[in-house]
Amino acid sequence: MEVTLLLEATENAFRIMEKARAHALGVLDTAVQFTGEQTRFMEEKRWQVLFAGAQRRKTRFQNFVGTALILFAFWMLLSGHFDPFHLTLGAICCIITAYLFHDLLFANVRVGDMRVVALRFLCYIPWLIQQIVLSNLHVASVVLRRKMPINPQIITFKTKLETDISSITLANSITLTPGTITMDIRDGVYYVHALDQKVADDLNAGEMEDRVAHIFMEADHLYVEDVLDAARIYDALRV
């Protein structure tokens, strides 16, 4: 009798110990799993940081090389001496300057399409010169007349240009044209001083802005969006 009681007691004790062991194993397993996830997460983060650092270093290196090449071309244009001594001096100077200013020249540049932009810019210059000559004659005729029929005014208009390089191209084109001066660009609004009504009307027509937008390909993606919308409409109609 006592023996059976003893046996039962030991079995119970064993069972409780088994259960406790399983429980402990489960806890250990979850702990191991959790720490594994934690370490994997940490690992991923470390790789991400490394990758971002490498990316940044690569961009910096590309900027450095691009700046140095452009400055070296400018140096050769200025110098005119092509013996090894002067070329070495130029290379040293370009490397120093590119090291100091590598992040200035290529800030906010959209990669690609540079060739198209340069070509369109070259096509834009003759039109600008023609515009300058025309309004130069107009301003001269206005100023030299005896009554001097000027009507100075400040006109404001909101631009559709997005990048700062295109907006300063437009601002400098306006300033180069006689009779109009860009005073300020604030939050995409141009404040332009115009000499008389005709010049202001020419500016408000907005041909110059369209041409500048065409140079920097800011008008193009609008057309692309239109085409996409039309395609979606056609799909809807076909179904």
């Binding site: 400055l71 370009c94 590119a98 300063i168």
Partner: peptide, 16 residues
């Protein structure tokens, strides 16, 4: 915007 962008483009050429 005008002064900032123009000087950003001008300073490296000026130094060289």
């Amino acid at each position: 915007v005008i002064v900032k962008t123009l000087s950003r483009l001008l300073v490296p050429f000026m130094v060289i």
